[in-house]
Design a binder for these strands. Structure first.
Ligand code: FES
Ligand code: FES
Lengths: 158, 158
DNA sequence: TTCATATAGTACCGTAACAGTACTCTTTCG
DNA sequence: CGAAAGAGTACTGTTACGGTACTATATGAA
């Protein structure tokens, strides 16, 4: 239902948790499990996936753990969502991949969906892990009535 | 995956198809099935659901059919998506309903998700069936770099 | 060098939502 | 009446989600 999966939600929660600990540069999965209340296996799976998407770096062995791969303001919502649930496309047709939908000729909504998809991506790309770790509403307050695109060139709307 | 379900896609396709036929004021499900290429039972189910959400009006009996309940520019994407797949909430916590998530205290992302959800809703609410029946990109071209909120009060971003 | 601790990798399973289909009932026009 | 159309119900197969268990590998410390 235009919903982000639970796992994704959890994953972003973990990222935010890591972002808030500026001090410790290595945090074990067990620790994150403890203070998020999520079962360890779930946390492990998520951290692994986030690592393979290069949002986290991991150190194995005793006293190992995870840390952010980049500065929190260099990681966007799109990065995190796509890490967990793959490239996000609003519909079958809206992705960049060649549309395999046979209805394309009769339906003809593909261009529209792609455009909308792009808008949503832009909105989500404007929100960073840094924002999520704090208050998005505060950080982007001034944008509330015009959305998140930064370099907007103001034009009149017909 | 932040994806709208196939049925929803179909449903919007049907709505668009209806919007394009300004002339005929009653179209049978069988007819829509024929020129969309979708199986009749699927089309019927969708039309029924769209009717119960008051986006369409139906006339029963012989020579009955469906018609738009409102002008195409008075029907938004949110209306259509919610008709098929229920109220749309990006996460468990982002809806208006009381959050039942027990992680609320430790995760504390609820406010952020709600805000983001609201942004997406605003974007989608700015797109009407009329736009979808034609070209969204053309209609909203001037808004491409600042998104779809109309009554924006321009402010500087810090 | 051995052991405890940590991540990496794999594999599996139960549930629920999605997507499709079939069948029956009711209404209305000719 | 009877054909045509929508309304309602019920069932099914498939897939993705969410959770769990188990094993392998790497590393620091005793
Ligand atoms: S569903 Fe593929 S083009 Fe519309
Ligand atoms: S998951 Fe419910 S508040 Fe974060």
């Amino acid at each position: 239902m235009l919903k982000v999966s639970k796992l994704t939600d959890y994953g972003i929660g973990l990222m935010a948790s890591l972002a808030r600990r500026e001090g410790d540069n290595l945090v074990a999965a067990r620790e994150l499990s403890a203070d998020s209340g999520l079962p360890l296996p779930t946390v492990s799976k998520l951290l692994k996936v986030l690592t393979s998407s290069e949002l986290l770096v991991s150190t194995r062995g005793a006293s190992g753990g995870y840390a952010l791969a980049r500065r929190p303001d260099q990681i966007t919502l799109v990065d995190m969502i796509e890490a967990v649930e793959g490239p996000l496309a609003l519909t079958e047709c809206s992705g960049n991949a060649a549309c395999v939908c046979e209805l394309e000729t009769t339906c003809g909504l593909k261009a529209n969906w792609s455009w909308i998809n792009q808008q949503l991506l832009n909105t989500l790309r404007g929100i960073t892990l840094q924002n999520m770790a704090g208050s998005v509403a505060r950080d982007l307050r001034t944008l509330t009535n015009e959305n998140t695109i930064q370099n907007s060139t103001k034009k009149a709307v017909s």
